[in-house]
Design a protein around this nucleic acid. Structure first.
Lengths: 196, 196
DNA sequence: TTTTGTTGATTGACCCGTCAATAAAAAATA
DNA sequence: TATTTTTTATTGACGGGTCAATCAACAAAA
């Protein structure tokens, strides 16, 4: 019973289905049929709206990044000091919405796929740059430029590392522990500076 | 022209071919035919020696881990102080042999696959535990147990994070920079303690 | 009657794993 | 030593299965 205006609904449903399918399987090896099935439509419809599978995956990644960007903006706005900005950025990456097995598995899978797909690689590069600059927006107020750069790089690496470890759920830190580890680093790094 | 005693040679060639194929493609989506082709044999022979594809992949991962274990042991033996032990462990992970695009791509791909394969997950867990205990063998001499544990966890996360960032070769730290970042963390963390 | 939504069926490609067949070396036998 | 037999090495050629993508066809709204 075709009703008009289904396109945006179907697109969203398909993207969500893609995330959950990837999250459950733990890789991008999910069939169009399975994704479509989860979204309650036929695989033909998925092709109708997204063309090829690559584009659906790309749209999904874009969606995840967009969500993260929104959360990030919100978190940064409610931070007043430089130090708070840093914590805000870290916090967002381990927030309930972002630090879920599903989302993380998808992240990891996309990271791997990025080695094949240049389009995906571009997307992740944008994210990486944005993360870096968001971290810098706080760190530059506390450390000299060069050191802030290094601290941002280190923090970003820690976040990625904690993500990957979470994906393997191997004695894995939960969100709170993960935050504590990063904050611990930041405290020793920034505290040290503050005393000088 | 069958010569006897080919089995070990073929096995090794196939494993090396697997690493390079995965490394180039950037994922485990490599066909048995391609692997076999790189090793200069037919796909049937690969099946003959390894059975199913899973087992070849598993054997490959086991091989990578074995190499790393050997390097690790060697590095630890030539370290005398606790502090040196920590640096030795870090250094091995970013040594020329380990920190190569090929090997890293394979690592990453296996990490992802581990979410599907419990056998692979077990292997990675062994590695993770060993890394942790190797780090602890140095850190316990410097920090109290609880803090050493946290520092080991953080260091391990940083290593993983730097690996994943390297895989995307995105303004990526080279080995020297990667080591510098980890050492920087360790210095602030341990230096702080030493002054007290 | 044109646009929008939707699907079942099909095609074409790809790939894992098997198997029968071949051939050289090694071992056993005469 | 000469021969047969067994073991080891190796492959081409499928079979069967999966899956992305297409298409023709149908249904409801505009």
């Amino acid at each position: 019973m075709p009703k008009v205006g289904m396109e945006p609904l179907r697109r969203k449903a398909l993207i969500n289905a893609t995330i959950s399918a990837i999250g459950e399987r733990g890789s991008l090896d999910v069939t169009m049929s399975e994704i479509a099935g989860r979204a309650g439509v036929s695989s033909a419809l998925a092709h109708h709206y997204f063309g090829a599978k690559d584009e659906l995956l790309l749209a999904t990644m874009r969606h995840i990044l967009a969500e993260l960007t929104i959360d990030m903006r919100r978190a940064l706005q409610s931070a007043s000091t430089a130090r708070e900005r840093v914590s805000a950025v870290v916090g967002v990456n381990f927030s309930d919405i972002q630090f879920q097995p599903q989302t993380i598995a998808a992240w990891l899978a996309f990271y791997v796929e990025a080695q094949k797909s240049s389009a995906l690689r571009r997307l992740l590069r944008v994210y990486a740059r944005r993360l870096h600059s968001n971290l810098m927006s706080g760190l530059t107020g506390i450390l000299p430029k060069a050191e802030a750069d290094r601290a941002a790089e280190t923090t970003a690496a820690m976040i990625d590392g904690l993500y990957i470890r979470r994906a393997l759920k191997d004695g894995v830190p939960d969100a709170a522990t993960a935050i504590a580890l990063v904050e611990d680093y930041l405290e020793t790094k920034l505290g040290e500076r503050r005393k000088q």
